[in-house]
């Protein structure tokens, strides 16, 4: 098991080491994008609207929304 794991780790390490300039640029774009999405957007702009409520409270909240008529 360990030799296989070592092979996989080495495969990835060599892959990253021998990456072209284009590959590096793309990884930077990916990391910046993921940071913006998870550390900025998710934290500050996407609070889960029903978060912190138990299943029963969520059901009661949505029942209230549905029976109060929405728009």
């Amino acid at each position: 098991m360990f030799p296989t794991l070592r092979c996989i780790v080495r495969f990835y390490a060599e892959g990253f080491r021998s990456m072209t300039a284009l590959g590096r640029t793309l990884w930077i774009v990916v990391l910046v994008k993921l940071f913006v999405m998870f550390a900025v957007l998710k934290l500050f702009f996407f609070p889960d609207f029903l978060a912190g409520k138990s299943d029963g409270e969520r059901a009661a909240y949505v029942l209230e929304e549905l029976t109060d008529g929405g728009a």
Binding site: F45, D48, F49, L50, V62
Partner: peptide, 11 residues
């Protein structure tokens, strides 16, 4: 879905 469409997501 979670933020803007929470009624939908639950339903």
């Amino acid at each position: 879905f979670g933020t803007n469409w929470s009624n939908y997501s639950h339903f």
